[in-house]
Design a protein around this nucleic acid. Structure first.
Lengths: 149, 149
DNA sequence: CAAATATAATTGATATATCAATATAATTAT
DNA sequence: ATAATTATATTGATATATCAATTATATTTG
């Protein structure tokens, strides 16, 4: 019913739609499995679990989020008792961020759902296509980084 | 420096990064050219310009946004005097949304920048690759739509 | 026609994104 | 060693995303 320049033909529109669609899907699956956590909160936990010594700044860069957002997500994770903040031994500007046992269990329990989400979302797309897609996305990222303009 | 499952290998991480990177780039370009409007606000204006008779609900579906978000974006566009809301002649639940002259001029002035953003972001990616990318994205969208699960 | 249902839009609450300003602490440069 | 700079993190303001509840009007159904 929609005429004109046809949004569907615009690549970036599809990009936006695909990632939003995936995020909504992934979030629904988490809710469906009874996990009371957002995708973004999970991402922060996961990153800290993998690299515990990161500063919040590094976390933000790793997961491509704003510093302010990371501060606020971490606040929520502390409230939910998934993270403990303590003074950093060597640098008093920083905090040490430690996952609680609950958080570690949570990550373990979530991993199968996360894996399933990914494979369901990639149904009928083979490995070669996935890696081509990766390359194109990386090219777009390269083209749009601040310094490349 | 970052070990472990390596976020960069995860397709959806690249997807998220690519669209965020593009959005930030596009927004920077708008600011650089002196346009005082967000990408999302532009998208709403553009959609209404192309299909003036849409309900807000339809606008939301067309641009894949939440209804509540569309309500709020439209509020801002009315404040900025780019949109005029009037009672709809036939259906008193609706509003007629009309672009002001300023909005039409704005869209005209912005179009070259928008086009340039897209082609800069797609530098070194040819048409065939673009259309393959499109197809894969559409497959992901299909896989993750609510009803397909 | 009246009741039930559906549609259009808004509002409130919470989460995240972005930008700018600020506070502290650490590092460096003179 | 002090001053200037840099790094780490927070906070406030505004925009957008999401979910749930609400209001008003239209449409359908019995």
């Amino acid at each position: 019913m929609i005429k004109s320049e046809n949004l569907n033909d615009i690549l970036f529109y599809s990009l936006e739609r695909a990632i939003k669609s995936y995020r909504q899907f992934a979030q629904r699956q988490l809710v469906k499995h009874g996990f009371n956590i957002t995708i973004d909160q999970w991402l922060v936990l996961k990153t800290l679990h993998d690299n515990p010594e990161q500063t919040q700044h590094q976390v933000a860069e790793t997961i491509f989020k704003d510093y302010a957002s990371v501060t606020r997500i971490i606040e929520l994770l502390v409230e939910k008792q998934y993270l403990v903040r303590t003074m950093h031994a060597a640098d008093r500007r920083r905090f040490s961020l430690t996952l609680t046992e609950n958080a570690v269990k949570l990550l373990d329990n979530m991993q199968p759902v996360i894996d399933q989400n990914r494979s369901l979302a990639l149904k009928d797309i083979n490995e070669m296509q996935t890696s081509q897609l990766q390359q194109l996305l990386n090219q777009i990222i390269k083209n749009t980084q601040s310094d490349s303009i």
